[in-house]
């Protein structure tokens, strides 16, 4: 097993253990969407109209809330120093951390998203598109959220600060994913928004590790 494999194994096990891993994110996601019919009333037509959008926004929140400890634990217990002196640059370490986060919480959320949306009244035919969009969007959320988590390291405030810092940056993926789901449901062209979402997610994967590594070094110094 290479040194990358060693790190991947550690990060996966940490991501899984972090606050109950998938359970916490999916639990928040489900609980928050249950609130919706309770607040809006059970009228199926009204719920169906907002099902896709609500699922999408709560998904973004759920992916952000579960990653506030992504760098903070390693920072607090000194492991970030160890990681900084390892054979891989911090940029790669940050990428692996985000991918582990996505595997452990983004993928289960993507699986839960169609179920939740359909339960709210979305057409079952939209389920595959919701799954794909949630998976791609989750990638963008994880990497931008990771950037927020790394930036918040020096502040010791975590969760809410990450959301305040990162949510405005999430405008593009929220729009692209929301439009993709909506267009797919209503029979409009959906490939363009989906490609834009994928492009944005890949751009985030390519660029944010530099910001995360810089933020980690800043917090360490």
């Amino acid at each position: 097993m290479s040194v990358v494999g060693v790190l991947v194994r550690r990060e996966m096990s940490l991501a899984w253990a972090r606050g109950g891993g998938a359970l916490l994110a999916v639990g928040f996601f489900a609980a928050a969407t249950v609130m919706l019919p309770l607040a809006l009333g059970p009228a199926p037509a009204r719920l169906a109209a907002v099902s896709g959008g609500v699922t999408w926004v709560v998904l973004a929140l759920a992916s952000l809330l579960s990653l506030d400890r992504m760098f903070e634990r390693d920072f607090d217990d000194g492991a970030l120093d160890l990681l900084a002196l390892g054979p891989l640059p911090l940029e790669v370490v940050a990428t692996i951390k985000c991918l582990a986060q996505w595997t452990v919480s983004g993928a289960p959320l993507a699986l839960a998203a169609p179920i939740v949306a359909v339960a709210l009244g979305a057409k079952p035919a939209a389920a595959p598109m919701i799954f794909v969009a949630a998976g791609l969007g989750g990638l963008a959320f994880a990497f931008l959220g990771g950037t927020g988590a790394a930036l918040a390291l020096a502040s010791r405030r975590g969760g809410v600060l990450i959301a305040v810092v990162v949510l405005p940056l999430l405008t593009p993926p929220v729009i692209f994913g929301g439009v993709a789901i909506e267009n797919y449901t209503s029979g409009l062209p959906w490939l363009t928004p989906l490609c834009l979402l994928a492009g944005y997610a890949l751009g985030a994967v390519a660029l944010t590790p530099f910001a995360m590594a810089g933020a980690c070094r800043n917090a360490q110094s």
Binding site: V6, S13, D74, D77, L85, P87
Partner: peptide
Amino acid sequence: CHMLGHYDGLKANRHVRDELVFQSRWCG
């Protein structure tokens, strides 16, 4: 370069064996 600071860099919820092997292998 090995650096051992005030904090040990150990994760409370992992097993001693996992942490031991990870730290050593990460450092080569």
